[in-house]
Amino acid sequence: MEYLEFELPIKELEDQLQKCMVIGEESEVDVTETCQKIEEKLADTKKDIYKNLTAWQRVQLSRHPNRPYTLDYINALCGDSFLELHGDRTVKDDKAMIGGLGKIGDQSFMLIGQQKGYNTKTRQYRNFGMANPEGYRKALRLMKSAEKFGLPIVTFVDTPGAYPGIEAEERGQGEAIARNILEMSRLKVPVIVVIIGEGASGGALGIGVGDKVLMLENTWYSVISPESCSSILWRSWEYKEQAAEALKLTASDMKRQKLIDEIIKEPLGGAHRDRDKTFTTVKNKIISHFEELKKLSPKELVKQRMDKYSNMGVYNG
């Protein structure tokens, strides 16, 4: 397990506990009490640190290298039933955007999401979760296919942004995202969006328009990453912490602003600290929201979604 800078006091205590237990095993000395004390301190420290996370610390947690990614969720939720489908039918199969059919319980879903890699090689293969236009077009093709057959859609959002490349511009990155946003607003099937890591701007919204948008506790969602915001507005990368605060990008901020529908609690320390628990929570949330959404007719569903997005934005007059 890797530790972030602000988690180092936890690492220290965990190391101490480890040593204490080894001493207990290898010698006659009774260390029960010492171990217990360390454990108590560890629990307190954890609570202390994770309860008072700053916006920037949550951004760091959202990018934690051990955090589960889209395929981890899909495999945990669907098991062997997942059938990955490839290609945009135009130019390429984008590895940064994955999708396919799978069963959650007895229900078939179309599952789509950005995919990150877990080591240098796979990170490059997945283009760090930054999709090209073909990724968004693949996603839309799959969503339209789900709509055709009346299947609900779940998307997993985890991207540092849509890929800012020359070819991406040539092939119409803007158009691809725009088209997705428009089409998703009028899909006649339930759409549940789960932000599982980073929700960076249009790259996230390109698969992020839904009836229910859920954010895991330690994720962020905004119009720009704190680093880029800092470099543009402060003209330096140094102000990322301030930018993170100012953008109001955490799950609780987003919920308070009524820009998302619900926060999904994570295990203490983040989704990666207890993956199974995270998967179970996410699965239950998806099922319960789907059970509610399926009661609506396609017409009601679309109207509700349209109304929701029509009401966003704060202004005078």
Binding site: S81, L83, L101, G102, K103, D106, Q107, S108, S145, F149, G150, L151
Partner: peptide, 15 residues
């Protein structure tokens, strides 16, 4: 197997 898996999934039938 794969053709029928797809059919079951897309038609929302038990696998």
């Amino acid at each position: 197997k794969k053709v029928n898996l797809y059919i079951d999934l897309i038609t929302n039938q038990p696998l």
